[in-house]
């Protein structure tokens, strides 16, 4: 188990180094001068030069790369060009929106998908199974921003239970935050739940066809007992993979939902920073997201090993 974990860790570090190089190069290649964006159409050449020097944009690129990476290792992500505040604080602020939102959505999606998937598998071919599968078909086909707009229309504009968007801020208390995040989390969770339900069901059905299940049944266990004691644990591997992918997606890919609900999350921060050519913010946030995705994958790899003892022995 230790050796397995160390090997995964080494590949994690190598991925991070490569990612940092690629991110820096790609972002530096994009045309557009942050100083020109900030100072607009009437700026004079000497003003632009002064601002570029102030932002450190006149340094050679290799030096800027090393400064950036060195800073990140010490936990210093630099100062945003346009916002003039430390990038680490901006990321932390946004993370306090994106992370709870991703977790909330993930909890909702598993809370819907696990029972639905297990139920559908246990009623295979019956009316209940057909209904659940039909609903998931719809959930997979409909994009989440459409759900979002419908939710706003019904619950914010017509019923007035929630605000149509915005984020109250943690200073307003726990309930205010939950209120701000419920509709977006639901919009994010529904399509994810649909996918997860289908994976759960098909994975369980695969397992139920295996020889060991027949043995368990032959031993005298009921259908329900075999399902819960034997099939479910073995069916978890594909489900965990999808969950890991979904969490990464929810963290980094909720930009459209953030836009629809005007939530100040990470996705919108990147979007704003790209259009303002706030390179340091873009680089740092993308790097953080890469780090998050790689770490989640690492955690999922370890979780496989916990669920499946055979993986611990394999090299």
């Amino acid at each position: 188990m230790i050796g397995y974990a160390l090997r995964r860790l080494a590949s994690l570090i190598a991925s991070l180094v490569v990612a940092s190089l690629v991110i820096f190069t790609v972002i530096e290649i994009i045309p557009g001068d942050p100083a020109a964006y900030m100072l607009g159409m009437n700026a004079q050449p000497d003003t632009l030069a002064a601002l570029r020097a102030e932002l450190g944009l006149d340094m050679p690129k290799p030096q800027r790369y090393l400064t950036w990476v060195g800073g990140m290792l010490r936990g210093d992500f630099g100062i945003s060009y346009t916002y003039r505040t430390p990038v680490s604080r901006m990321i932390a602020d946004r993370l306090w929106v994106s992370l709870p939102l991703a977790i909330y959505a993930l909890v909702l999606s598993t809370a819907i998908a696990f029972p639905a998937g297990i139920y559908a598998a246990s009623r295979r071919g019956k009316m209940a199974d057909v209904t659940v599968m039909g609903a998931t078909q719809l959930g997979v086909a409909v994009p989440n921003f459409w759900f979002a707009m419908i939710l706003v229309l019904v619950f914010a504009i017509n019923l007035g239970w929630f605000s149509a968007g915005g984020f109250a801020g943690w200073d307003e208390g726990y309930w205010a935050v939950m209120r701000s995040l419920t509709l977006p989390a639901l919009a994010l969770a529904l399509p994810q739940a649909a996918i997860l339900t289908r994976v759960m069901r098909s994975s369980l059905l695969d397992m139920l066809g295996e020889d060991f299940i027949r043995t368990a049944r032959a031993k005298g266990l009921s259908a329900r007992q075999t399902l819960w004691r034997h099939a479910l644990r073995n069916a978890m591997i594909p489900v965990l993979t999808i969950l890991g992918l979904q969490f990464a997606f929810l963290l980094a890919g909720s930009i459209i939902i953030e836009q629809v609900f005007s939530l100040p999350g990470l996705g919108r921060l990147v979007f704003q920073a790209i259009s303002a050519r706030d390179l340091i913010v873009v680089e740092s946030v993308v790097m953080l997201l890469v780090f998050a995705v790689i770490t989640v994958n690492f955690a999922v790899d370890l979780a496989y090993a916990l669920v499946d003892p055979r993986l611990r022995a394999r090299r």
């Binding site: 149509a164 915005g166 005007s262």
Partner: peptide
């Protein structure tokens, strides 16, 4: 509120 649709929603919901 940068998104035009979200702006309309915020107005209609009296946010």
């Amino acid at each position: 509120i940068s998104d035009p649709t979200a702006a309309l929603a915020a107005v209609m919901a009296e946010d």
